[in-house]
Simulated assay, not measured.
Amino acid sequence: MSMTLDIRPSCLCTERLTAAAKRWRFLKRIRQFDQMDFQFALWQMVNLVVAPRKVYRNFVTRKQSKDQFARDDPAFLVLLSAFLCLSSALITVVLRLGFVGFIKFLLWSVFVDCIGAGMITATVMWAVTNAFFRADRQHDVEWGYSFDIHLNASFAFLVFIHIIQPILYYPLLSLQGFVGSFFACTLYLVACSYYLYITFLGYSSVPFLKGTRKLLYLFPFLLLLYCVTVGVGWNVSRAVMNFYHYRVM
């Protein structure tokens, strides 16, 4: 006997909030630090790296109770901003960018790498999933949820690129020849795999989306790209760190 997940809200609201109303309620809560659940947001961050499946069970529960998949608590966004500040400081020290360079790098990280790229990625995935993966046309994927999926996947990705990479850069990743290229490309393979897998988990958790396993078809292309970069000896870590340096100097 099959079980069907009930995604109808169990709350007593008689009207569904519009997307604009949900965004306004979210923005209003950004100033209310005493009402944010930072402990739970930190739990999400840890599990996005060690057990990402656990995180998306909460998103399904939120849909049942509050009629939305997207986060209604900005605590995760606040902690992500703090993480970007700390990781930007670490990269600044490693690359010797100075204080002005730190400010520039932080602004790039927050407004271009995170928010700008996130809005583009979320919009593309929101359009694609609603156009090609919906089995029930009475429901649609919220744009805010697509953006949350990107933030979740980005955090795991940035743990490797903004924390592990600068720590290992000079002793290992920047080495000339095959050794440096191998470890640098492997680090990016793991980081990109996390991003792709967490993105897949996010959309596969939506009960009215079907065929989301097709997102995993990108893994063979990722592996092929990895083999090519290692084969030609391209050190992607050195290229990225040089890009970080020259875009703020």
Rank of each mutant, 00 (worst) to 15 (best):
V190M: 05
L224I: 15
Y197P: 03
C192S: 13
T212V: 08
Y195M: 11
Y203N: 02
T186E: 12
T199V: 02
F200E: 01
T199F: 02
T199C: 10
L223V: 14
L201K: 02
P220Q: 14
L187K: 07
I198Y: 00
L201E: 01
L209S: 01
A191L: 04
L222M: 11
Y197W: 12
L222Q: 07
F219D: 01
L215H: 01
F208L: 08
L215K: 01
I198W: 00
L196N: 11
Y197D: 07
K214D: 11
L218Y: 03
T186I: 12
Y195F: 15
V206Q: 00
S205W: 01
L218N: 11
K210V: 04
S193W: 09
S205A: 13
S193E: 09
V206A: 03
Y226C: 10
L201S: 00
P220C: 12
C192N: 12
K214Y: 14
L201R: 00
F183V: 01
C185I: 14
F208D: 02
Y197V: 10
L225R: 05
G202R: 00
S204C: 13
A184L: 13
K210S: 13
Y188K: 07
F183Y: 15
F200N: 00
L224E: 09
L225G: 12
T186G: 14
Y226L: 10
Y194K: 05
T199L: 08
L215C: 06
T186H: 12
Y194R: 06
C192R: 12
L189A: 11
T186V: 13
P220H: 13
G211F: 02
T199I: 02
P207K: 08
K210E: 13
A184G: 15
C227V: 13
L218I: 05
S204I: 04
S204N: 15
Y194V: 01
L215G: 04
F219C: 04
K214L: 15
G202A: 10
S193T: 10
L201I: 12
Y217D: 08
F219M: 12
Y217R: 07
C192K: 08
Y203R: 02
G202P: 05
L225H: 11
V190G: 01
L196C: 09
Y194L: 08
Y197G: 04
L225C: 10
S193Q: 06
F200L: 07
K214M: 14
Y188W: 15
T212K: 05
S205V: 01
C227N: 12
T212R: 05
P220R: 13
I198N: 04
C227I: 13
G211V: 04
L222T: 01
K210R: 15
A184W: 09
L201W: 02
R213W: 14
F219N: 05
L187N: 07
